[in-house]
Amino acid sequence: MSTTTDADTSDDSTSTGTETGLAAETAAGPDDGVLVVEHLTKRFGGLTAVDDLSFAVQEQEILGFIGPNGAGKSTTFNCITGTYPPTEGTVYYRGEDVTGESAYDMVKRGMARTFQSFAPLYDRTVVKNVALALTPDKLFSLSGLRGGTRDRAVEICERVGLGDRLDQTPGELPHAGLLRLELGRALATDPELILVDEPFAGLSNQEVGEVSDLLADLRAEGLTLVVVDHNMRGLLDLIDRAIVITFGSMIAEGTPEEIRTDEQVQEAYLGGEL
């Protein structure tokens, strides 16, 4: 079952009141948010990974994208960010139809993403990894030869907490470091919206807190974030709003409190109370 953000949202299963923040939204059109996804569907042969998913991301919010493993979260990300096009549906970014555009075009538009199974470049240092994302997409460019690029890369590394690991290679980084590198690379592309794919997986409690603070800071600086995870622990304290999906469809939408108390979510996900 999927719901769109239209004013008549009064499915008993989702809204516990009239103030769901988005109940006031009109039917999701291209301008309803920074990123608007309409009727997104992705089929791989006989398998439907994402089923008629629609949602909108508001400017400077932190939207949580929650679901158990295999729910279709990463697939949705991939469709949105251009890894592959959706089978059906439309993706709007700042009002423009960007469905199926290639990954690098999406990045140039201002939509960056991190990879769940980290994709650093192992053949170069941390700072050079970030520097690559600062490189303009031009065949003839000398910006790297001048000191400016490196300085900016160092700044970004310090921003994400890798200031003391500038010259290490990704192979030497601990798990949390690789995540920070992903964020650093995403930040280097000067994005407006970052889709963060499962940042908390494999982190200790302390690290979860650190990364969470970092993401909140980024939002305070003007970024919009969509954070995917199936680990509720770190996520619910960070996000403003959440979408819960399972088996490719949305089953709930609302604030963290609403999600916590939503029965469907509890059943589908936790088998009981949160």
Binding site: G82, T83, S102, A103, Y104, V107, K108, A112, R113, F115, A119, P120, L121, Y122, D123, R124, K128, A131, L132, A133, T135, P136, D137, K138, L139, F140, S141, L142, S143, G144, R185, A186, A188, T189
Partner: peptide
């Protein structure tokens, strides 16, 4: 810069695309 990008491509093309 092009040389850096070349080598990055041989490492991981999707990382290159994700870098814009």
């Amino acid at each position: 810069d092009a040389g850096n990008v070349f080598k990055a491509i041989s490492e991981d093309e999707s990382a290159v695309a994700a870098s814009g």
